[in-house]
Write a protein that binds this DNA or RNA. Structure first.
Lengths: 139, 139
DNA sequence: ATGCACCCTGTAGCAACTACAGGGTCAAGG
DNA sequence: CCTTGACCCTGTAGTTGCTACAGGGTGCAT
């Protein structure tokens, strides 16, 4: 178990299932610290970068915004701090997800209603178009 | 029932619960035709604009993209055409909504799991942070 | 030495708006 | 008549989270 050699940006991308451009973008917006450079000006990443990027990706998969992840990272770095703030962010995010879920559920119902009524005749009496048209005003 | 006087952009915005800037943007991207202008260069809208904008807004509320609405509007204008294409767009959209719904449902489950385990101690043993950290690598 | 895969910076684009800045217009009140 | 304030105009830049070039340089194998 010798300590691993540094990774290029392509290696890191492959290891985290991230695009190279996305990694550079994370660096620009200061989610990921700028790594050292090789003689030829290539970025060289170590295991700490790998850990941090994995954290970011997992957070994004869970739907946290970049700003929320920035906060979570700052807290994770300050290990003695209370976990209550972390909990607050996570709960706020869950509430938002649940709101979106409710909206989409309602939406799917409405769409299914509208689609179910379509007899696929001509547009002139299409129920879908009618459902979109202003209430009580055909033509 | 005399025919209504033309509306200003502000009137139209109020009538459709839309922002003034959004209406101008719809005009720029050719969702809404450019209306006539007053002597003082104000936009003047008639009932046809009101109908069309209501259609657009309802479509947006149902989650159709601007491009989809453009297609739907083109079809709605061509009243003899078959309604099958309209049905296709609506079904494709419903399928997309259902996919998003499934994703969000999974997400909400994961978030609830993670949050449920948080004892709100210090960050050092926060389960939320841990859940985000790379598999099998504390520190 | 020449190809090829990879890396670099910087900029522009996507969706669907939103938010100004820096002006012009119009009706009412003093 | 003049001012005040609410409205309107155009044009540009910002938002979120990337993605896609263009126009170059690097590194390794043949």
């Amino acid at each position: 178990m010798a300590h691993a050699p540094p990774m290029t940006i392509g290696d890191l991308a492959a290891a985290t299932n991230t695009r190279v451009e996305t990694i550079r973008w994370y660096e620009k917006v200061k989610l990921l610290p700028a790594p050292e450079r090789s003689a030829g000006n290539y970025r060289l990443y170590g295991p700490e970068h790998l850990r941090r990027l994995s954290f970011i990706r997992r957070g994004r998969d869970l739907g946290f915004t970049v700003d929320q992840i920035r906060e979570l990272l700052a807290m994770a770095d300050d290990r003695d701090r209370s976990c209550a703030e972390v909990d607050t962010i996570a709960r706020a995010h869950l509430a938002q997800v649940e709101r979106k879920l409710a909206d989409l559920t309602r939406l799917a119902h409405e769409l299914r209603d509208v689609i179910g009524q379509c007899g696929c005749g001509s547009v002139a009496d299409c129920r879908i178009i009618e459902a979109l048209s202003p209430h009580g005003d055909p033509s």
